[in-house]
Design a protein around this nucleic acid. Structure first.
Lengths: 226, 226, 226, 226
DNA sequence: ACTTGCGGGACCTCCCGTTCGT
DNA sequence: ACGAACGGGAGGTCCCGCAAGT
């Protein structure tokens, strides 16, 4: 059970570093420190491994916390991802798999992971529209796909240049540039699009989470005492 | 000689379709209709082939014609590329190689092709700044890299979805979204950012070119007569 | 205990269908519907499994009933086997293992199962000789081995052609052809070498057996009553 | 070109020794003394190799020379094969492949090589019938298949016992036993079914052949002189 | 007595990128 | 410019233990 996670993490890391095709099962084995038999027990092929990495991505990136502004949540989502990418191999791997899959006709559908991202973004935009945060002319579907595409490209560039280290700055700059064309001015001035927004949001989320856990434990204890 | 061009084109096509790693020499051989010996006479390795494809890219995409607005030229450059991508295998191949190269430490420097694009864009922006077309706060270096990154990502998405067929629309939408954050209003209203801008520009360029050639021929003839 | 029999039957079936080398433990597992642990509890290796199949063969094929003519018994033995082969996976498996075992020097002695058959046949022939059923020049050892060899070959051919369905006819034809060179005319005319001889003999044997069992039960009941 | 023959011979030898499934490409490589690449250039899979061995069989076994008695030719064919088997690895391999191919549904048609042999035998018998050498009741189709089946089985047994060394004797004994049921007495007494018949026939064939070649050379020389 | 979960290596086949003679 | 040959792994998966539970 734990081996499976180890393998998945190793696979994601290798895929993230050198891509699906260049990655070797042996590379992953070496990275994970397990044997071929162990791997084969959990994943019966390289392709299955890649799909598992892609599927794990969803759970790997946490959702942004509730915010008064929906657009802030949309931004937070991107910034969270941007700040996770350099440090979390699972995220890095799944993103790279999304962006560069061989495109062979017999392979898996490349659109699926893109669509998953686009859907998420679209939903935020839709909510923002309902609250009047968007400029009237904005096409939320097109815009969602645009953001996903831009993110993917900038991430690739950032990887080539700095191994993702400057990704948060680049994504922040993306939002700075794009948001004026989307958000109503009143919202625009209140958006927090600092490069460290992602890590701040995550820190807050973790604090909340541990607080909740502590509270739950207390409640449980209280119930036990009673 | 001519074989070399055939091979290059075939290689670019294969690289563009399935990526560098997934591509096999045999694939390229089949596509080009030449033998292994012929290929290895011109290019001594797969890597050299890829680099040749990357180098050929520069000459493959024509430059935008002069325009009164520098930002229009910047747009034209992107739209030209967007309209070339679906149809020109050489361009497609080189773009894919740029975006997804293995990232192995021993491989070529992935930054080079990105930088080439960014440099071009930056120069347009710099010229635009001198002419007062840009909003004062715009950082031309960051913006240039942003545009390149976005283009790369959108192109990848467009390939996954429609094999690049909807790329011009997507890129047009990119410019529509980004330009308001860059251009002064007076310029903004005069920009032509229609999806077919790329093909129109190319058609014009070709017309001009053939006219020039005709004129040159006439001049030469005149000179000869004299 | 019953699991063991299930496994053995499944193994024999798989061996019979695709041969020892081509057979996979997993194939057998699937066929038997048991788990790896269960199999390895009873048989500690594929080779041991194969040997168990070979050993079970002896008990799987019933002996021909007594007949006035020893040669008829010899024929019956072959016809019984021929009629068992298509339907009994255990027999089919053991026969195939006999005929085609890898011949590697480290493997088991391939001669053993052949010799077991040859011995049986030889004994029938020896008995027939004592009763004067054989032509004087017949070499019973050579003839016994000949019959075994021919049977093996015809069985293989029948499998390739009709999955053993026409085996009884082919074996009947073998006896028709060979017997004139072995039996004295007086015996020859009285031999029953019909293709359905095997199934008839088995039906008779089973009838006798159930009758005996009924009788034994009656005797036991009578004893109990007393 | 010569490498191909080397590989084929080595493959046949390995297949002949341990069977198709047990044989590994590496075994064949070691036996042939070539590299994996060389093999893969000529045969792109193990299966293709096996089929090539099977196809080469036809040309590997020479045809019996003309004889006044057709049945003698039929016998000669079998004896030739029997005497070739122990010494010619190509023949040994192809025979083993014929007899024991995995029988998987996706594999090649196992009947083909059997049918090839049966056809040959049948033709001899048909010719013999026209010349009145056969007993009237003989069914030539059934008999041909019988002979092929018996040969296959005896060969397998002989391999298990003596690595084919006693095959000629066993096959001679087969003919001795079967011929009385087929041939008219006048033919029977004139048949030569000695164990060394095969090698004698081959020696004669070779002598004739070299004589013919010498004669042809002489004729050519004479023509040149003229 | 039998099952499940997991792990371990050992190959095997395929085929790839490459270098020779020619 | 070509066909032949070359090694070196790639991915796959097979056969098999060992643990802990029924």
């Amino acid at each position: 059970m734990r081996t499976r996670a180890t393998i998945l993490r190793a696979a994601a890391s290798v895929f993230g570093d050198i891509g699906y095709e260049a990655a070797t099962i042996s590379d992953i084995l070496r990275e994970a420190g397990v044997t071929k038999g162990a791997l084969y027990f959990h994943f019966s092929s390289k392709l299955e491994l890649a799909q598992a990495v892609l599927d794990a991505q969803v759970s790997a990136v946490s959702n942004p916390a509730d915010e008064p502004l929906m657009l802030q949540q949309a931004v937070d989502q991107g910034m969270l991802l941007a700040s996770s990418l350099p440090v979390d191999p699972l995220v890095r791997g799944s993103v790279r798999l999304t962006v560069e899959w061989s495109g062979r006709e017999d392979g898996p559908d490349r659109r699926v992971p893109y669509l998953r991202w686009a859907r998420l973004t679209r939903d935020f935009l839709a909510a923002a529209r309902e609250r009047g945060e968007l400029l009237p002319h904005v096409d939320i579907d097109q815009t969602a796909e645009l953001m996903v595409g831009c993110f993917a490209g900038i991430q690739g560039m950032s990887q080539a240049f700095t191994s993702h280290k400057d990704l948060p700055e680049r994504i922040a700059f993306l939002y700075h540039t794009v948001m004026p064309a989307i958000a109503v001015p009143a919202v625009l001035v209140r958006l927090d699009i600092a490069p460290d927004r992602g890590s701040r949001v995550r820190a807050m989320a973790e604090a909340t989470e541990s607080a909740e856990r502590a509270e739950a434990a207390q409640t449980a204890q209280a119930a036990e005492t009673a």
